[in-house]
Amino acid sequence: MELDNEMSKVGQAGARRFSSIVLIVIIVVLALSLTALYQAWEAIQAGDLTGGYYLLIGFVGLALSTYMLLQTRRRIKRFTLETPPITTIIVCPKCEFKNVRNFERGDYILKDLGTCSKCEGTMMITAIYREVPEKRKEEKLYP
């Protein structure tokens, strides 16, 4: 466990140092690109053709820094465990009354849930599943 603690210290310090360096770089690039844009504006105002280069540099720098900023945000977002929604479907086999709700602890497939609210039949859990959103189904992308 001692090594474990040491490791976590190294890891956390590393992550913090890493992200602060990245942040400084991003800010510097952002400042530089803004200056470049300003210079471009001044040059174009003065009728100087080199203003075009400044404009290019400015926009590239701007794009780069926003991209990096988004990347670091994604890094932070990765540090969570997602909980997918689980659906439980309850059906009365007699009158076909159907109830769909979120999963609760204690649910299991083929569990009897007592009498139906509409008739004398016995309600039963017929399905418990997780639905994967359409955009994450990748199988269509390949031939």
Partner: peptide
């Protein structure tokens, strides 16, 4: 394993249980 752990802690059916579910449907 992380998502398995969550499913186990809640008692949710997992994909590996497909075979067991088929048998359950047949013997119900």
């Amino acid at each position: 394993y992380a998502s398995a752990l969550k499913a186990f802690s809640h008692g949710q059916p997992i994909g590996d249980g497909a075979g067991a579910l088929v048998a359950a449907k047949l013997m119900h």
